[in-house]
Nucleic acid binder design. Sequence first.
RNA 1: GCGCCCAUGGCUCAAUUGGAUAGAGCAUUUGACUACGGAUCAAAAGGUUGAGGGUUCGAAUCCUUCUGGGCGCGCCA
Length: 571
Amino acid sequence: MNLYKYVSDKINEKLGATVNLESPRNREFGDFATNVAMVNVKSAGKNPRELATDYVAKLAELDFVENASVAGPGFINIKLRDDFIWKNVAAPEQITADKPLVIDMDYGAYNVAKSLHIGHLRTSIVGDTLYRLGRFLGHKMISYNHMGDWGRSMGFVIAWIERLHPDWPFFQSNFDPDGDYSKYTFDPAELDTYYPSAAALAKTDTAFLEHAQMITAELQQGHAGYNAIYNIFMPISLASMNKTVKSLNIVPFDNDLGERNAAKYTAPVEKMIRDKNLLVKSDGAEIIIVKRDTDNKPMPPVMFYNSRGAVPYDATDIMALYYRKITDNPDKVIYLTDKRQSLHFEQLFRVAELLNMFPADALEHIGYGTINGSDGKPFKTRDGNAAGLNDIIDMVRVAARARVAESGKKLDDETIDEIALAALKFNDLMHDLRSDYIFDPDSVTSFEGRTGPYILYTAVRLNSILKKAETNQKSEIVNHKLTVDERNLLIQIMDFERTVLTAFDNRATDLIANYAYDLCQLINTFYHNCPIMRDDIDDKTRAGRLHIVRVARDTLATAIDLMGLTVPREM
RNA sequence: GCGCCCAUGGCUCAAUUGGAUAGAGCAUUUGACUACGGAUCAAAAGGUUGAGGGUUCGAAUCCUUCUGGGCGCGCCA
């Protein structure tokens, strides 16, 4: 149940006020606290402690209140009755948001012919958890991997292939579009080196750069040879992306539709823009002015056609939005990208408004921070290269395997992978996604303390008890007087629903991760202090504690699933 | 130049969006039933929340000035 909401509503009803209910930081103060007396002190004309005393008398009449007391400058602390807690604590169910929405989520945004690197970690992992959260709350979530598959980088890749194989038919003037080109193929790993190599060359070789830019424009305008070679490497690259997606255990994208798909809608979108007289010629390009008189900051125009006639990402993003409008017609579109792109999205949203495509509040950009190394600069491997995502996954796996070997346990590879992935993903999820954070390989691979493996370990422990207790499956709730550890755990369990709702509302995946960690701490303390299967434990206590274990396990398992992690059978 | 973001124990992060004695993890020191599984638990030590000023019952959080960092500002995404 949403304990917080229930208690909050009852108290509001009783006091005829809007109470700001909170969980006290220090659990000894009580299960809940409120500052309502301090807030209402002005209108009441009493001092806060007097007013609080009045409130306390009323609160004591509520059937779920064990006691209520005044503390400090006028806080009211409330302790719940044991039987109320016993009666209401339950495993989480699918929660339905008040108003289920259709939500398009744009994250991932992988690039063709460029392997995933550490920059894709957050968009993938956080995007996946937001997607799962939204789904859990009953929203219709539609995910888009808005691939970089049609812009400048494609010209670079093709130019690089031409450089390697100038004799290939795709680059000849007499290219036959109906020919059989099945013998031309690429090794995925090698393909991933093409774009970086080309980009590096373009920095020094202006002629190469200009040639690549021309190829981009010609590709977009239908050049047969370029399109043919594109159609060969594109699927190879996509398969490679999806392999990484799978190894990250993120929900497959509903749509792998990127810039190329969007560009199909150039004509209707251009018409919309022209109809409103928004397209302006400038330096050979065609742009949309989005600056407003009230702006006190730089607001460059949106590029629709560049001077070579190609559609850059400014334009394809408008078209992608158009595509989503005419297909999903979503209530909301949420973009999850690096925060450095926030100006771009502000521009895009202005265009959407100018075109009456979406109101401003339907579009949302969540900008996540950079993952830095211990030097405070974007994380690189020891040899100074941008760290590949597969390399990072492997690094954590190797560490996990070593850890298992050291402990003398025998776990299969699948389990080790689950542990390693948990370490990597939890480390990402626990940070405030809008801030930069430092990625410390030693800390991520330590598997101790505030880590993914700690979370999984806790779940495995609970499963282990339940397995052991299988024989006496009394599912009825036998209540006994709660110990402090039992009580703290149950209160936290009952706060799950509020946490999930708040996390989604604030697009704050760290709330789920931190909730799970706090829950695990309480579980482990309970586990340590409250024996269950030991011979000296009476049946009533055992049955009650087993019930707690079941509910705790189910709650934790739900949180783990929302984070896209898997509980191993053993560890 | 204009604009946005950040600064919290030695290190990495929190702080219920203005609430009580600023909490965790790592590292350090110490302890735990020969174990419902020790990837755990318990405890100690460690803080003028970058600096100054202001707002109020109450500030890490809001305003202001300063210092130090990061990022963005038309043909990349």
